[in-house]
Amino acid sequence: MDERKITMVHGSGGSATSELINEIFAREYADRTLDEMEDAAVVPGAGTLAMTTDSFVVTPLQFRGGDIGRLCVCGTVNDLLMRGAIPKYLTCGFILEEGLSVETLKQLVHSMAETAREAGIRVVAGDTKVIEGNGGLYINTAGVGFIPDGVDIRAEKAAVGDAILVSGTLGDHHAAILSERMEIETDIESDAAPLRQMVDSLISSGLPIHSFRDVTRGGLGTVLKELAVASGKVFEIEEEKIPVTAKVQDFCGLLGLDPIYMGNEGKMVVILPAEYANQALEIMKSCRYGENAVQIGTVLAAAAGESAAGGESYNAGGELICKTAIGGRRRLDVLQGEGLPRIC
């Protein structure tokens, strides 16, 4: 147990900074490029690169099922994967607030290194700053991935007749974070996970995948609406097929939340021609984090004219329609307003 706290001197750039880097970061991230401690990482390249960056500001720093260290790898790695890229290099920028426990920092950095190993991505560059504050911590990660020849996965490729698959239960991360913040006792765990194995398996299977999207902030509703708009098609999903655990369902009932708009950190949507849906589901189910994969809907053509009782027409391009359990139809939009507290 390390009793020390981070102080401004750790950000001086002098000996205290080097000690912190050597003792905590370099040890965990041991990497032939990082270990050179040069001003920039020099690494081999490829033909087509995918690049992404994301910042992580979640509180609490540690929660059931994960922590900010695991999250900051999953978020960036999953974003690379969603374009069909093979994750290669990760950089991380840490902003530490004065008063942060060194023990906590060690645990978070360890968790980050472990998740990076699981995701098969190398941490090749990093930076640390210390600011005044109250023991908080923020992380930015950027990632580079290589896109294999012939892989072209994009939001607008969703086509009429495609199946809409989701890799598992929704709302777990959001509910885990909210319950910690609100001190509601539950054992709901965050789903924070790198989806490397699932994506690699799907791509190497050669199935004609049209789109991937990770279901993060804004939830399934927001993600599917964006895909519907990007492709100009009608997305129709069935409420009863959307996987949500009983615990999360109860938690949502208690707080008036809708799992369709809750954030996740280890779930993805897969869109591909319906005739390949079962093969894709089998692959997903055989992968870590994919055991609850299921088809939740279908991509339909945009067509005018037809309308439901009550005169509401539902089938313009870019619409997301949910068939409700009692047989109604509900139009869904992206999450409006601020919704809920920050969760990543």
Partner: peptide, 17 residues
């Protein structure tokens, strides 16, 4: 909460005009 539940369940489209 009724307003929200009516919309969420898609009830308006299930009623006679």
């Amino acid at each position: 909460s009724h307003t929200g539940a009516i919309a969420k369940n898609g009830i308006p489209g299930m009623l006679s005009d």
